[in-house]
Structure formats: C-alpha cells, structure tokens
Design a protein around this nucleic acid. Structure first.
Lengths: 345, 345
DNA sequence: CCCGTGAATGATACCGAAAACATCTCGGTT
DNA sequence: AACCGAGATGTTTTCGGTATCATTCACGGG
C-alpha cells in the first residue's frame, strides 16, 4: 500500500501513527493486529479503535520484507485454458483469500520443460510461498526440480514424474461411473475418446473405462485420442459416426463431447436414439447442449480448496508427509444417453 | 522473495552480495538492473555477470516498500464468471506481465455496492497501482468513489455512472452486424434476448439492435431479458419457441444462445430452417454447438491489452485525459442462420 | 590553466513493519 | 521480605532495496 496517497493526504497512516493515537508502542499495534495472545483486551480495543479512526491498513510490502513471508500462492496454468482449470482457479482463489493469502497466476503456452520453468521462475520471482501446479509435469529440468524442492508445491493433475503432493478426483472411478451407466442401459460396449495421455486425469479415465469394460466382460474397442479441445472431439466424432456398431461413447471432457455430438449430428446419427454420449466435467453449458449432456461432475472448487489446504500445511510444516486425497466424482444423467437402438441389441 | 532459502543455503543472495562480487556499490547494481542510462556498459556487464553467477533476483517486497510502487494491477471480476470475463483476464495478465506488472484478481459475488467495495478494498490492501473494473459499477458508495479517485481505474464494461476511463468494443456496431445479417437473409424482423440492463455491453447491443431495425423500417418486437446465464437463455427460448412469427433471434451472449437453441429444439423448432439464431462473443464452443453458432466475435484479449495500456498511461500521468477506445467487432457466419421458411416470407 | 558541467559512481538515509531482546508489573512462593 | 516467573509492553535492530545527496573525474570553453 502507501502506493498512492489519497489526494490531499500527505501519506497513508503507518503503524507509528496508529501507535501514537492509541498511546502505545508500534510493536503493540503489530501484536494487536496479528492476534498475538499476549495483549490486554483493553489495549487491543484501543488499538483497533485507532486503526478504525485513521483508516489504517498494514503495508504488505513491509510485512513481506521483514517477515520473509509474502502471503502469496502461485498457480501454474495452461494458457489454452479449458473450463476445468479455470474452475479450479476460482476454488483456489477463494480459499487462499480466506487463509489470508493472495494468488498469482503464471500461464504457460505449452507443457515443455522450458516453458514450465519460465512460469515457475516468474512465480519464484514474485516470492510465492507455495505453488499449485495445475498442469502435468511431464519433464523436469534441474531448475524445475530445485524450485519445487525449495518451494512447497502441490500438483493437481497427479503427474507420475513428480514427487509433489497430489490432489485429485478419483478419475478411474469417474470413468467407471460413466461406463457402467452406459452398459447398464444395455449397450454391448462403450467407446472412449480420451484426453492427452500426458495428463494423469486422462490416463486415469482411460484406465477406469477399460477396467469397467473388463469387469463386465465387454470387449474394449480401440481408444480414440483427443487433446481436450472441442475440435479434437469433432474430428473423433467424424470417425465414430462412420462406424455402425458404435452406440455408446464416453468422452474425457465435455468440451470434446460437444465436438463429438456435433460431428454425429452432421453424419445424421441421432442422439441418444442411435448413439449415447457421456462427457466429463459438467461444465455450465453441458445442460444446454442439444441434447443436454450426461456427464460426470467434478467438484472443481473443492479440488482447488483442497489443494490450498494441503499447500498451507506444507508451508507450515515442510516435512509433512504426502497425504494424497481424492474426491468422489458424481454421475449426472441427462438426455444424451438412452438404451441402444433395437437393431443393435 | 527470500521467502524460502534453498535447502543448505543460509539465505538468498541480496544486492550487496552482487555488489561485492562485481566490485561495485549496491547502488550501481540497482542502477544497472533498472536500466538506468548513466551506467558504463562495462560496469553493467560486470554486474550482470555477478547476477548470473549468484542466481540473484531482486526482492519485490523491498522494492515495493522503498519505491512505493507495487508493480501490481488489480482486476475486479464477477464470481459467476462467464466466458467473456475470463478471456479478458487472460489478455490483461499477458500484457501486464510484459510491462513488468503482475495481476491480482478480486472476485465479487454480486454487483451490490458493498460487495464491490469489499473487492476494491482487498485490492487497495494489496497495494495495486491500478485497477481494471471488469464489471459495471452500478452504484458507487463514498468509499468506492474515493478509492477509484485515489487509484487509477479503467472500466471495461463502460458504465454510465462512473467517470473512469473506458475501454470497450463498439457493442452497438456488434448488434447491428448481427441484426443486419439476419435482415439481409430475408427475415421480416429480429427478436432480441438481451443481457442484464446494468451492463453497458448489454445496453449497447440492445440499442444497436433497435437502431438497425429502425433503419431497415422493421418493427422492433418486444425485448426479452436474460442474465448472461445459459439457463436464462433457455427460459427465453421456451417463450420464443411458442411464438409462431419468430424466425430470427439475436442473443446477447453465446452462453444464452446455447440455452435458446436448446429450448427451441425441445419445442421442435428446427434451426436454422425455422428459426435463425445469432449469438455474441464467439466462445470456443460456439463452433461446436449443434448447429454451429453464427455469432459476433469480440477480441477479448485485445480488450484486456488495451485496458492495461490505458491503465499504465494513467498511472504514469494521472492527469492524462480520458481517451476511450473502441474495437471493431466481427460477424462470424456459421450454420445457425438461414433465410426464413417460405411460410414466413 | 581554471572552472563549470555532466556523466559515472559511491555513501547514507529511509521505506514500514516485525523479530529479537529488554523492561516492567504483579500475584504467588518460600 | 525477597524472589520468581509469566504476561504485557517498550526499544532496537533489521529486512533489501532505492531516493537523495555527495563525490570523483574527464572534457571543453574562456
């Protein structure tokens, strides 16, 4: 603060001003405002009154400088942000704010090590106390390893190459919910459009899908690969729509599912009469797809909140051992799924 | 910074360490790193070499404290973030970063004065040097007025109640493009689902729509009101679909347009054969709506960049006079629009 | 040859808080 | 009565830069 004195005022009030007004020492003001236990209630009241009267607010820069704690958390995000990452960011910001932290975002255009390194260095520059990696860490340079060792880091997309803490939805379970739903409607098997293999979310869903088919004794058709974008869903939809035996598709994100559905429409395959489609994420528009999209909900805000909770624990106690937590996904049945057409049964 | 020394290292290197290593005074290091003109190239080189060797990075907190400049910009955003605001945020972050600023986001759950005031106070607390209001300022308390007077502020949704600088797309023009497109296809008139009246974007589109109809000698049907949400589009779609004479609809956001289209589908009105729909924003999914959505593109990243550019000017020179800039919107014709059915011509 | 001038660099003070250390007060012990 | 210890408060120092002022030096004109 103190960045720009209000017009007419020489400078914003500092702690000494509050101290003078309250008739105590600056240190006491500091203690009162930091909820230090050893402050007489009466004294605290005097201080708070003075603060109120002067409209005093502590200077973050000075606080950070002296204490060595910036009270900032960093997020590394992908620039081509799809819904899920944005939603998580909201969750992170909310709970960080509650804990007295603010949040900086560093976006990276790609998952390459140099790009990620640049993002991490930006955050390190800003003096963040902890980092939420909202991307998979597919390759770690020495610098990256050093930074994530030096700064407590939590990974949201549980990557297999890092040893950082992990917060994640149980994606295998999510895929099972979707696959079993389709099988229970009577579909002989379920096709799958996956996300990029580097994302553990995508890999987990792929595993879950395969496992559910296995357990049901259904044969797993070849997997189709997308990149999270609606466009990649569309491309895969153009393929799926040409295969007569396809009656059920589980797609690894709602955005791709929109693309799949559009391609199927174009090819004249009716949904859900001829083909059922299940997405993943439950984005706001999922309900307003035509037809509305059956999907697996992911509580993104909760994920963000958990990540922050973890991170704060890690900041307070760097030796805290990893305790990965998982959140239960939830199937939301809408209009894009139905029993298979009679001809396919 | 200096928040968390790398394991084994006592503390991060400070400017004095660099100075010692380079054989110059700390002040010279400061000048060299700040691109001060009066530094011998040879000296600067020595300093940079020392910086490199030590892996030195300046401490933001100390810089901010002494200089009184935090190098932080703030954004006030609505929590129920729709695509447009998120996209703008990306633009802001990118160009802020380029200018050496970082960005803090304060989200507000509503547009009420107390909520907005809270968001602004948060940002003031963080010591932001400038603020981008990405929401309409519908009501200003004394505190809000004081804060926006004390801290350079740019409004993205040009609000009529504030005197702050404005950066905006020419929304009247956007609405004209959409409306004229539909009229030129042969529609007798165009219906409109607007955004909340408090948003000047919404108001501008409404004006443009009405003006285009006027000029074409078409009668303006009653306006329907939405709140940006897909759900509100759906509700309005349920109404529009029951009015036989409706053949063309201009919707003030793509998200609402998705809702409208779904409602029309449910009511059995075919798009674009019976009803044409135009959205606004050109969100990523617009192309993958079924049918793909004709819409008016808004260059959100550019808007964000312009906002930052403005803000920086205002920070450097608080007396700089307002110079509102507008950006040209662009119509993107896809599959959701077509000539009206023969029966309606 | 002297002095003014401006470029290059150095020395010092200070930003505003909090940590570390010092002091004081007071009830309870011995 | 002297003493102890913990709680409450005050004093001093320090965090790491940069603004400000001071100093040095080379150069050109009178």
């Amino acid at each position: 603060m103190a960045v720009r004195p209000v017009a007419g005022v020489e400078r914003l009030p500092a702690m000494t001003d509050v101290a003078r007004r309250a008739g105590v020492s600056p240190q006491t003001v500091s203690r009162a405002l930091s909820n230090h236990p050893n402050v007489q209630p009466a004294t605290r009241a005097k201080v708070l009154a003075a603060v109120e009267e002067l409209g005093y607010r502590r200077n973050n820069a000075a606080r950070a400088l002296k204490s060595g704690r910036s009270r900032i958390l960093g997020i590394v995000n992908l620039k081509t942000s799809f819904f899920s990452r944005t939603a998580v960011t909201f969750g992170i910001e909310g709970s960080a704010r509650k804990a007295g932290y603010s949040v900086r975002t560093a976006t990276t255009a790609s998952l390459d090590a140099p790009a990620v390194e640049r993002a991490l260095l930006q955050l390190a520059d800003e003096g963040v106390e902890g980092i939420v990696l909202a991307i998979p860490l597919i390759q770690a340079t020495e610098t990256i390893r050093e930074l994530t060792r030096a700064i407590p880091t939590v990974t949201i997309d549980g990557s297999r190459t890092s040893s950082t803490e992990v917060v994640a939805v149980d994606q295998e379970r999510a895929a099972r919910l979707a696959t079993e739903h389709l099988l229970s409607l009577g579909h002989r098997t379920v096709w799958h459009v996956s996300g990029p293999a580097l994302w553990s979310d995508a890999a987990g869903r792929s595993r879950g899908w395969r496992a559910a088919l296995d357990e049901a004794g259904a044969e797993a058709p070849p997997e189709l690969h997308g990149d999270w974008s609606p466009e990649s869903g569309y491309r895969n939809g153009l393929i799926l729509g040409r295969i007569p035996e396809v009656t059920a598709v589980f797609v690894s994100s709602d955005e791709m599912a929109f693309g799949v559905i559009r391609a199927l429409h174009e090819l004249g395959r009716r949904i859900p009469d001829e083909v059922s489609v299940v997405g993943t994420d439950n984005i706001a528009l999922a309900e307003y797809c035509s037809p509305s999209l059956t999907t697996v909900d992911q509580p993104f805000a909760e994920i963000g909140a958990l990540a922050v909770q973890h991170l704060l624990r890690l900041i307070t106690d760097p030796t805290a051992e990893p305790a990965p937590m998982t959140i239960e996904p939830r199937l939301i049945v809408r209009a894009s799924t139905a029993p298979p057409p009679a001809s396919a049964q």
